[in-house]
Amino acid sequence: MSEKIVLYYFNGRGKMESIRWLLAAAGVHFEEVNLTKREQYEKLLNDGALMFQQVPLVEIDGMQLVQTKAIMNYIAGKYNLNGKDLKERVMIEMYSEGLCDCMEMIMMLVFKKAQEKETQLGVIKGKVTSRYFPVYEKALSGSQYLVGSQLSRADVHLMEATLMLEELFPTILSTFPNLKAFQDRMRSLPTINKFLQPGSQRKPQPDDVYVKTVMEVLNF
């Protein structure tokens, strides 16, 4: 197996995007294999690469890793994005899990019908402004990072989530000044800034082509 880091997924955000963000924030080069045909997926299955018959799949350090949380935990540990001790790590994981829950709601929007999507948008905005953002706004009061004195995976996930939410609700940070200031600081980090530039491996908002590809490859 190659020593390169290779990501196997669709040419879109989905569950792989947070993995791309972590690698990019760590300044790590990675390659991608975009699944566009059912045959590619079946080959991964037949080769035994997908433990639970699901993607994302990441080849790293001679391993074939599946399950998004396991992949992100490994990357965070390998590239020093998981805090300095066990207490910091559990706080990072709590913040990260909340953000993953939040982003999963957004991920599923593209697969919903128009009327369901409008209803869900209202649900998302309500939960974000009353349940999620107040937690991160408080954590960033007088602090540069969510946990401890260095960048962690929780900070990277928060940056990704705030940008995704601004795509849906452009003024959503207007009543969260600490989050807005945090976002500005994150933009100034060289690796993050590079990932935000045109031509990077950051994916755009999902469209009908992405949905059609996912449905065809997974045979839904």
Rank of each mutant, 00 (worst) to 15 (best):
V123L: 08
E116W: 12
N178E: 11
F10T: 04
E118S: 05
V66H: 00
K87Y: 10
F176H: 06
H157P: 00
P134W: 06
V33T: 12
Q144P: 00
L168T: 13
F30N: 12
Q205W: 04
V214L: 01
G77E: 13
V211S: 05
N178C: 08
R38E: 15
N34K: 13
D101F: 04
E97M: 07
A49L: 13
D47N: 12
V128P: 01
I5Q: 00
L99C: 01
H29E: 15
C100F: 08
Q150M: 08
G48E: 05
L65H: 02
S96R: 04
Y145D: 11
L81F: 09
D85N: 11
E3W: 03
L57H: 11
K138P: 04
M63Y: 13
E116C: 05
E42W: 05
A25S: 15
L50Y: 14
E104F: 02
Q183H: 07
N219A: 08
P190Q: 13
S141Y: 00
K15D: 06
Q64L: 15
M16T: 13
D184W: 00
N82E: 12
P177T: 11
M63Q: 13
W21L: 13
T162V: 11
N34E: 11
T175D: 15
Y9M: 07
F111P: 10
N73Y: 08
L196H: 09
L165N: 03
L218Q: 09
V58M: 12
K127C: 04
Q120D: 03
S200L: 10
F220W: 10
F220T: 02
C102P: 01
A139S: 02
Y9W: 08
M215S: 13
K37W: 04
Q183Y: 00
K78C: 11
M105S: 09
T129H: 11
V28K: 03
V217W: 10
L165F: 08
F133Q: 06
I192V: 15
T36I: 05
S2L: 13
K87S: 09
F176A: 05
S200T: 14
K87H: 14
L140G: 01
S2W: 06
L44R: 06
L45Y: 14
G83C: 05
L44M: 15
D184S: 06
M164C: 04
L86W: 10
I75A: 00
Q64K: 14
N80L: 01
A26T: 15
F133A: 04
S96V: 09
N34L: 10
I75T: 04
Q40S: 13
G122Y: 06
F176G: 07
M107Y: 08
M108D: 08
M159A: 06
Q205C: 02
G98C: 10
C100M: 11
A181T: 15
P206H: 04
V209C: 00
A139Y: 13
E31T: 07
D155M: 14
D85C: 03
T162D: 05
M186A: 08
M215A: 09
M159G: 10
F220H: 13
P134M: 04
F182R: 13
K37F: 12
F169I: 12
V135E: 06
V33S: 02
D184A: 13
R20P: 06
L81E: 04
M215I: 07
L99V: 15
A154L: 08
L22S: 05
M105G: 01
M63R: 03
Q67P: 03
L109D: 07
Q67H: 05
M103K: 01
N219W: 03
V214R: 02
Q54C: 01
M108V: 02
